[in-house]
């Protein structure tokens, strides 16, 4: 993970590199992040944080997270984290024949399984993006509550200030958002 801090005096920039590193470690997202840009203008109290995510993870389908046994008509889910998501998807289609036998075991007819096995149950990138957003909020000063957010597939950029965000700051945020 590369951290680039601009716009601040050298000592303050060094302090912010340490701070950003610590916050990313706390959120456990350092390995998923390629680059962090941070721009600080203490005179106008404008701060911009822009984060590049390393790679976009594939969404997980039911067949990726569970194994179906046709003889017992039983779906065994690998991790109970996915169970509520699968159950809510199944119950939205049909409640007939669908029964949770155990924490990770769901009884369901084979026809229903064939219908839903390709359905997406979890988008890992969504969670990562939520964490990235939280981390950005932590990095930016607490008083900078007025935010201008730009989001793309692999990039999240937030410009923030305690005052209204000027057009120039928005343009600068756009520049950081598009920067490699």
């Amino acid at each position: 993970m590369e951290i680039i801090v601009e716009g601040l005096p050298e000592k303050e920039a060094q302090g912010y590199v340490v701070l950003i590193n610590d916050i990313m470690r706390e959120f456990e997202i350092r390995r998923s992040i390629e680059k962090v840009f941070f721009y600080g203008d203490t005179e106008n109290f404008v701060f911009i944080a822009s984060i590049r995510i390393k790679k976009v993870l594939e969404p997980l389908r039911i067949e990726d997270v569970a194994i179906y046994n046709p003889e017992k008509e039983m779906l065994s889910v690998e991790d109970e984290f996915y169970v509520p998501k699968i159950l809510s998807l199944l119950w939205s289609l049909s409640k007939e024949g669908v029964e949770q036998e155990d924490r990770t075991e769901i009884k369901m007819p084979i026809e229903l399984y064939n219908r839903v096995k390709g359905e997406v149950v979890y988008y890992p990138t969504d969670d990562l993006k939520k964490n990235v957003q939280e981390a950005i909020n932590r990095v930016l000063p607490e008083a900078a509550r007025i935010k201008y957010i730009l989001s793309a597939e692999k990039t999240i950029t937030v410009a923030s200030s305690e005052n209204a965000i000027s057009e120039d700051s928005k343009k600068l945020a756009q520049k950081y958002h598009e920067r490699d």
């Binding site: 203490t42 109290f45 000063p141 607490e142 008083a143 900078a144 305690e162 005052n163």
Partner: peptide, 8 residues
């Protein structure tokens, strides 16, 4: 309200 430059 101790945070910020202008609003503290």
């Amino acid at each position: 309200r101790g945070v910020g430059q202008r609003i503290n």
